[in-house]
Design a protein around this nucleic acid. Structure first.
Lengths: 97, 97
DNA sequence: ACTTCCAATATCATTGAGCGATACTATGAT
DNA sequence: ATCATAGTATCGCTCAATGATATTGGAAGT
């Protein structure tokens, strides 16, 4: 029951965090796990790729401890989408809660 | 972007309304359309069937204007699921908004 | 009475998305 | 050199959302 809702929110959460700082795949997985949710790599990475492809995120490769890490940051288009989504989400949720 | 979120919420909205009164397929479609969202019959009915099958809703057939209408009402299990979901949704949403 | 029309329910085939499994890459440790 | 590990990546299966379409039964018009 909660799974659907969580998955619906995943993109918003990614944009939200990418709006506050640079994020990368495993960081997101841990952040979500901290909140009691888990998402598999096979789900997360395609989401990141599509968000980038659609212009909501931009990618920056950085070598951290020798490993190439793909940092994602929100774009202006992403910020707009996030701000547009918020009131709609509020409306959806407030009726029920 | 909003489509995912809306679809995640659809089950909660159905339970929510089935908690306040008896509901049926087309009524739900209209209610959602009123809020600016639409859902096709091919999506809605399987959802209703699975919610019933999983014990969240119970069905009652009633003849209205001569036509058999399938009214759904929430069950005790459904009420519990709804109440459990609310704080989790709140948590998911509040972080972002 | 019969045909047309409509609301509501239902199913089918296609498409797309989530997922587990698995592989790949580069580094540091032993 | 080999191993373990973190992080990224993709494949193929399954299941769910969708549009299109079918079905049902009464209501209204003739």
């Amino acid at each position: 029951m909660m799974r659907n809702i969580f998955l619906g929110f995943i993109r918003i959460h990614i944009l939200h965090h990418a709006n506050k700082s640079d994020i990368y795949g495993v960081w997101i997985m841990n952040e979500l796990k901290r909140h009691g949710y888990s998402i598999s790599a096979g789900t997360l990475y395609p989401i990141l790729h599509s968000l980038e492809k659609e212009g909501y995120l931009k990618r920056r490769d950085e070598v951290v401890n020798g490993k190439v890490r793909k940092y994602y940051r929100i774009t202006e288009k992403g910020v707009n989408a996030l701000e547009e989504a918020k009131p709609k989400i509020k409306e959806l949720v407030e009726e029920v809660i």
